Simulated scan of single mutants.
Amino acid sequence: MSPDTLWSIGELAERAGVTVKTVRFYSDRGLLPEGARSSGGHRRYGSEALDRLRLIRSLRTLDLPVPEVERVLDQDDTLEDVVAGQLRQIGSRLTALRWQEAALQLLRDCAPEERATRLRLIGAVSVPPSTAPLARFWRRWLPPRLPARLVSAIVDHSVPQLPEGPTPAQVLAFTRLHAFVTAPCPGTDNGQPAAHQPDGGRPAVLYDGLVEAYTLASPQVRAERSPRAGEALDCFVSAYARSRDTRDTPAFRHGLSGQLAADPRIDHYWNLTAEITASPEPTPGAIHDWLCAALDDQVAREAG
């Protein structure tokens, strides 16, 4: 073929294996270079347009939107960047489909009398699901005046990582967790631990110490060791004592044991989180319970 050969719109369409309508569409958007115009004003195209049209067809086969194709052709974006973005979108759609599939299995396999309740739970959750309501719950639950870096660290450890391919049981656990964290609260202070109240001491000192105590106790909880005294418990109690500008004494431990036993609990949150993650790593709630049990045991031994 001579480099000077020009084709009509129909001839170009036939060579590229597309319709005349397709050629006209891309030509009208300025994506196909015209070689010339006929004496009657009809478009004529050369080999550059054929190469360009074949490239467009390949990109569209990958389901790239036309604006993305335009950016690649105009070199506003590299092909690698556009492909990476498309892969992220496909990954998100696949995750949504997997969650929908597990939700449908959940509805299919449950008893008829449970179906309406489960359908309401599922309908309240976006697909793919978002953990934003869980993060908002923790930002409300945590005491005021905490440093932003500490709040972020606590939220990161408390909000579970959702599986991309959940089981029906994990879908059910997440929908229940979503219902729990989005339920209306009767009051801003209602249901908060004593440490969260205005006279609860210095919350930043407390939570910094709790993060350290949980880190120390985590290996023992993971190994399923019974609650016991030791460095983790000492760090745990010290966090409460330092936040209240007092000393760690047997009397303080006795009082703290009673206070923690009376504090409101959110075990439901942690139980559902464990179901969602299906991880051998203990939740912060499980670690807190272990440390409270260790404190109760020590206080009981000393009292006996």
Score class of each variant (00 low, 15 high):
285 G>A: 13
236 F>A: 00
244 R>F: 02
247 R>F: 04
251 A>F: 07
256 L>G: 01
257 S>K: 02
268 H>S: 13
231 E>Q: 09
282 P>Q: 11
241 A>N: 02
235 C>S: 15
255 G>R: 14
249 T>S: 13
236 F>T: 03
237 V>H: 02
260 L>F: 13
275 E>T: 14
269 Y>N: 07
277 T>S: 13
268 H>L: 14
271 N>A: 10
276 I>F: 01
245 D>N: 15
254 H>S: 14
241 A>L: 02
245 D>S: 13
232 A>W: 03
251 A>S: 15
287 I>F: 01
271 N>C: 12
266 I>K: 08
242 R>V: 02
236 F>W: 13
273 T>H: 14
276 I>A: 03
247 R>H: 10
254 H>A: 10
261 A>H: 09
260 L>V: 13
264 P>E: 12
266 I>S: 10
281 E>K: 13
248 D>P: 04
247 R>V: 01
278 A>I: 01
257 S>N: 09
261 A>F: 09
261 A>C: 08
256 L>E: 00
281 E>M: 07
241 A>W: 02
249 T>P: 06
277 T>K: 11
260 L>Q: 10
276 I>G: 02
233 L>V: 06
286 A>R: 12
285 G>L: 11
267 D>V: 10
264 P>K: 07
284 P>W: 11
244 R>H: 02
262 A>M: 12
239 A>I: 04
288 H>G: 01
264 P>R: 08
235 C>H: 13
239 A>N: 03
265 R>N: 05
234 D>A: 14
286 A>H: 09
257 S>L: 00
275 E>D: 08
236 F>P: 03
243 S>M: 02
261 A>G: 01
287 I>E: 00
261 A>I: 05
238 S>N: 07
284 P>V: 11
263 D>I: 05
253 R>L: 06
277 T>Q: 15
283 T>E: 12
250 P>S: 10
278 A>M: 11
260 L>A: 07
268 H>P: 00
261 A>V: 08
242 R>G: 01
285 G>H: 07
249 T>C: 05
237 V>E: 01
266 I>G: 05
286 A>N: 04
244 R>N: 10
268 H>I: 13
247 R>S: 06
273 T>Y: 15
247 R>N: 05
249 T>Q: 03
270 W>M: 04
258 G>Q: 12
242 R>D: 09
269 Y>L: 13
243 S>I: 03
233 L>Y: 01
282 P>K: 11
284 P>S: 07
247 R>G: 01
269 Y>D: 06
243 S>Q: 07
265 R>V: 15
253 R>Q: 15
242 R>L: 12
231 E>D: 14
252 F>H: 10
239 A>G: 05
231 E>V: 04
266 I>N: 09
